[in-house]
Simulated scan of single mutants.
Amino acid sequence: MKKLEQSYKQRPIRFIEILNHYDWKLKVYGISYENELPNPDLINDAKSVTLSKLPAISDTVYGVGYIGIHDGRDSNFVFLDWWQDENELHHHVFISPKDNPSALVEMTHTGISACVWDLKLICFERQAWLDSVLNNPKGLPDLDSYLKSYLNGDF
């Protein structure tokens, strides 16, 4: 087994904004290897690329989700996740070279999913969905509550 190149080190995960796109509302998060927030060009490119993947809103597509923008050590990693069919998370992954954020290419088909920092965010969003939607005592999705719940910290 190959020796680790680098031991685990916390990275900032920061809520950036709620992005409104037509009837969609997406939480936007930044994760960075060496800065407080990802490169601004990467943030803009990530929003442009991911928005083109959103399906039409319907009775089973709620129009809410999140974008994770990870300015990593060796490359940029972006993921778009949205909630559908009550309890399903749809996950799309994009990667670009560190020095060329606009070259984001969809890599979902390769099976790559998430690193340990991305998983922290995905786990948080799972719990927010459970609390606001699936465990809502009224039996109706509380999408406003879901959108008001976001993660900020070093993990």
Results as ranks from 00 to 15, higher is better:
Ala103Leu: 13
Asp144Leu: 03
Ser102Cys: 05
Leu134Asp: 03
Lys27Asp: 04
Trp82Ser: 08
Val133Leu: 01
Leu134Gly: 04
Leu26Gly: 01
Tyr33Lys: 08
Pro137His: 00
Leu80Gln: 08
Cys123Gln: 14
Glu34Leu: 08
Trp24Ser: 08
Asn152Tyr: 03
Asn35Gln: 15
Asn44Cys: 02
Val78His: 06
Pro137Lys: 10
Asn35Tyr: 10
Ser52Ile: 04
Leu140His: 11
Gly139Phe: 06
Val49Asn: 06
Ala46Cys: 09
Asn44Ile: 08
Pro97Met: 02
Leu147Ala: 07
Asp41Thr: 10
Lys138Gly: 11
Asp74Glu: 14
Lys120Asp: 14
Val78Ile: 04
Lys148Glu: 13
Leu19His: 02
Val49Ala: 15
His91Asn: 00
Ile95Arg: 03
Tyr150Leu: 04
Asp45Tyr: 13
Pro97Gly: 09
Gly68His: 11
Arg73Val: 05
Leu119Phe: 13
Ile95His: 06
Tyr29Lys: 11
Asp74Asn: 10
His70Gly: 00
Lys53Pro: 01
Val61Gly: 10
Tyr66Arg: 11
Phe94Pro: 00
Val133Cys: 15
Ser75Trp: 06
Ile57Glu: 14
Ala114Cys: 09
Lys47Pro: 09
Glu36Cys: 02
Glu106Met: 09
Ile43Phe: 09
Asp118Gly: 15
Leu143Glu: 07
Tyr146Trp: 02
Pro38Thr: 11
Val116Cys: 04
Val78Cys: 09
Pro141Ser: 01
Lys47Asn: 12
Ser96Tyr: 00
Lys98Thr: 00
Val116Ala: 12
Asp142Cys: 05
Ser102Tyr: 06
Phe124Cys: 13
Gln84Lys: 12
His109Gln: 15
Asn20Glu: 08
His91Arg: 07
Trp24Tyr: 09
Pro137Cys: 11
Asp45Ile: 01
Ile43His: 04
Met107Tyr: 11
Gly72Lys: 05
Ile69Phe: 01
Glu106Gly: 12
Asn39Tyr: 01
Leu119Tyr: 05
His21Tyr: 13
Ala114Tyr: 10
Tyr22Ile: 00
Asn136Tyr: 01
His21Asp: 03
Ala46Ser: 15
Leu80Ile: 07
Leu151Lys: 10
Leu80Pro: 09
Asp45Met: 07
Ile95Lys: 06
Phe79Val: 09
Asp59Phe: 10
Asp144Glu: 10
Asn100His: 07
Thr50Pro: 04
Tyr66Ala: 12
Val28Leu: 09
Pro101Asp: 03
Lys47Thr: 06
Tyr22Leu: 04
His92Glu: 05
Glu36Phe: 08
Arg73Asn: 14
Pro55Ile: 12
Ser32Asn: 02
Pro40Ser: 14
Asp45Thr: 11
Lys47Ser: 12
Asn87Thr: 04
Ala114Ile: 02
Asp81His: 13
Asp99Met: 10
Lys53Gln: 13
Val61Glu: 08
Lys98His: 11
His70Phe: 15
Leu134Cys: 03
Ile95Phe: 06
Tyr22Pro: 00
Gly63Leu: 10
Gly63Arg: 12
Leu51Thr: 11
Asn135Pro: 01
Glu36Asp: 15
Tyr146Val: 04
Asp45Gly: 07
Lys27Leu: 03
Ile122Val: 15
